[in-house]
Design a protein around this nucleic acid. Structure first.
Lengths: 197, 197
DNA sequence: CGCAAATGTCAGCGCCGTCAACATCGAGTA
DNA sequence: TACTCGATGTTGACGGCGCTGACATTTGCG
């Protein structure tokens, strides 16, 4: 009988997966390391053999989030249609991600993980890749635009879609989400405004 | 000699003011009730005679923030120029507020205080007033627009400006904020995109 | 004056992240 | 095969947190 072996086997990956499940729904502040350790059947200090501290674990979770998002972006960029259509699809990928995994989305775009002088190393690659894919989607919609214009458009487009998602999640549009405007119409208006007609 | 009287005098207002100072810079998570109590010279439990819990104090701080923002909005709406110019000024008021008091801004627009089924009573009035003023600014820029259009425009405009501020504060635009694009140009591009040319 | 309500203090609960010291196990080598 | 050592997990403890209940002081009202 091999009940409760002393060593876990692959505690690091197990912790990331379990933390991801918690963060996806409840965000970073819903994650308790003690609770997490207990939930995977290990003592409270065990996680510290694999992560320097709570932030390092959260950085790994966020990195997974960026990787998943990038898969969606790649698909959007490879989809049929013209550049403008692909940019709309990329926006929809971002929106779907935010709505399906709100807590993870918040960790990725609201936390200060990437705001530091030295962001967590695991996070830099996936995050930069996401930026590049978004950039490519915007540039592909108008091949005649120069660098300056593409940068400005990327920022305004991202701002509009992200701002809508963040304010909507915080229920700040409650007073506006009434007849005669349906939610689907709002999302459509936001995508149209973001991608420029 | 009246050194250290047993009763503070106006602890409630003192606590709100001290909490506001902390939150303005560091956001809600930088606020420790124990630390706050000590900083104003009372015991750890004293704040609980004036606020049911931490959230109620934060709600009062956020309410102050909305009141201050509304003062700026009123000034923007009373400024000379046409409706479109006033909407641009209102956007600038919002941007200035976010840049001067980032932690307070975060508490007001990112926390879940207003997302609850029953938001804190002190917060409802000031927050709704802010919505109304923003609505008026957008409606004033195009008196011919119907309700549906005004709602959609308010949402997209607010989303664009807020999204830029939030992503910028989280340093998500780091890869884009390079030559040949200056920061002032970016802000101008965002305001232009938000207010519709 | 006397008493109750308002407002403060103190001790303590359970939670948290984190660390140091110790225990156990598995892999490589003499 | 036996030994050792590094990797990995456990236990106990520390300080900090929000919050509560019991108690102390002050103020204001009848």
């Amino acid at each position: 009988m091999n009940k409760a072996p002393y060593h876990h086997g692959d505690l690091r990956q197990t912790l990331i997966a379990a933390a991801l499940a918690v963060v996806e729904r409840g965000g970073a502040e819903a994650l308790s390391l003690r609770e997490l350790a207990e939930s995977v059947g290990v003592s409270r200090a065990a996680p510290y053999r694999h992560f320097a501290d709570r932030d390092e674990l959260l950085a790994c979770v966020a990195a997974r989030g960026f990787e998943d998002l990038n898969v969606g972006y790649e698909a959007a960029l490879a989809s049929p249609g013209d550049g403008h259509a692909r940019m709309r699809i990329a926006s929809q990928v971002y929106i779907d991600f935010a709505e399906r995994r709100p807590g993870l989305f918040k960790l990725m775009f609201e936390s200060d993980l990437l705001a530091r002088d030295q962001p967590p190393p695991v996070l830099i690659g996936p995050a930069n890749h996401a930026y590049q894919l978004l950039w490519r989607a915007v540039a592909g919609a108008d091949p005649t635009a120069d660098e300056k214009t593409v940068k400005a458009r990327t920022i305004t487009m991202w701002s509009t879609v992200y701002g809508f998602l963040a304010l909507d999640r915080a229920r700040r549009f409650k007073p506006f989400m009434t007849q005669p405007l349906t939610r689907a119409e709002i999302v459509e208006a936001v995508i149209t405004a973001a991608t420029g007609v």
